[in-house]
Amino acid sequence: MTAQVLSTNLARPRPDPGGQDRVSGIDKRPVPRIEVFEPGPDYGDGPGVVGDVVGDSRHHGGAQKAVYAFAREELDYWQAQLGRELGNGSFGENLTTTGIDLGTVLINQRVRAGTALLEVSVPRRPCRTFGGWLEERGWMKTFTNRYQPGAYFRVIEPGVIAPGDRLELLAAPDHNIDMATAFRAKMGDKTAARRVVAAGCLPGRYHEELVRIAG
């Protein structure tokens, strides 16, 4: 199956479902296309998608979390587990993909999507907003135990991405750290953290966080 974009999604701002006094951008809805760009380097610099919304500017947005992707195949898995429909964008993703296992993409691998060039960046950490949005007790632990977090991307070259665009994985980086391993490390797996630290593939604060986890 060809790896491609199934749906492009933008936020419909709403009160934070996790109970915080702020708006949230987790409610993403399909749109005909999205335009992506490189935001500033830090969380507070907003999303890398024109017209999108970041509510929690302490933990989202910025260059390392410019664009978020999640696989339709995983939405289908959770749809069956939870017994309810999950439309494209339901997990807060800008790109709903198909034909690609986002857990196996390598950190820092570049991906051509539409007229944009993206680069796999850092793993997601499930948060209270995510749990409140799905209204599932123990959701953060349940989601973590699946070890399929989707993938955040940096924007290397700005451009436009639309449903049906092919996802072309370019040359692999010189390490074997995939997104699932980076996620395990971030969520406290010391063995995974040591592997990721040794590879030196994550930027700044993300690397230092895993140094502490690795002990």
Rank of each mutant, 00 (worst) to 15 (best):
Y206H: 13
T129F: 09
G114R: 08
R166K: 13
T144L: 14
E168Q: 13
I26E: 01
R166Q: 15
Y147A: 14
G40Y: 08
A199D: 13
A199M: 10
L106W: 01
Q79F: 00
V50R: 14
D21T: 09
E35D: 14
A63L: 08
N176R: 15
D189G: 05
V120T: 11
H59S: 11
I107P: 05
P30I: 05
V5W: 03
V36C: 11
R84M: 00
F153G: 05
G44P: 10
E73N: 08
G19V: 01
E85P: 01
M1T: 14
L86F: 11
V36H: 11
S57Q: 15
T98K: 13
L106S: 06
L102K: 07
G92E: 01
I26T: 03
T115L: 10
C201I: 06
W139S: 10
L75G: 02
C127S: 10
V211M: 00
E208Q: 15
V49N: 00
G40L: 08
E35A: 14
D42Q: 14
R124V: 01
G200N: 09
Q109L: 11
T98E: 15
P15Q: 07
A171I: 05
S7V: 06
D76N: 02
I34A: 00
A198R: 13
R195A: 15
T98P: 04
K190P: 09
T142P: 00
F153M: 04
A214Y: 02
V36G: 10
A185Q: 10
L6H: 13
Q4L: 12
T129Q: 08
K65I: 07
A69P: 01
A198N: 12
F153L: 01
E35R: 15
G188A: 10
P32I: 06
A172T: 12
M1W: 05
D174Y: 01
V67H: 07
V122G: 07
F37Y: 15
A198T: 13
V36R: 10
I156K: 11
P30G: 02
A185F: 09
G204S: 13
G103N: 01
G200S: 09
E74H: 15
G138C: 08
F91K: 01
Q109N: 08
L118I: 06
R128V: 14
V160T: 15
R124Y: 02
G204W: 01
E93D: 02
V53M: 12
R58Y: 09
R184Y: 03
I100P: 05
E119D: 04
D27H: 15
P123H: 02
D101P: 10
A116K: 03
Q4A: 14
E73D: 15
G25Q: 04
R205Q: 14
Q4I: 09
G159D: 01
G51C: 05
Y77H: 15
A172L: 10
G87M: 02
R125M: 13
L118H: 08
F130W: 10
E168S: 07
N145C: 11
A116N: 04
H175E: 09
G132Q: 07
L167G: 03
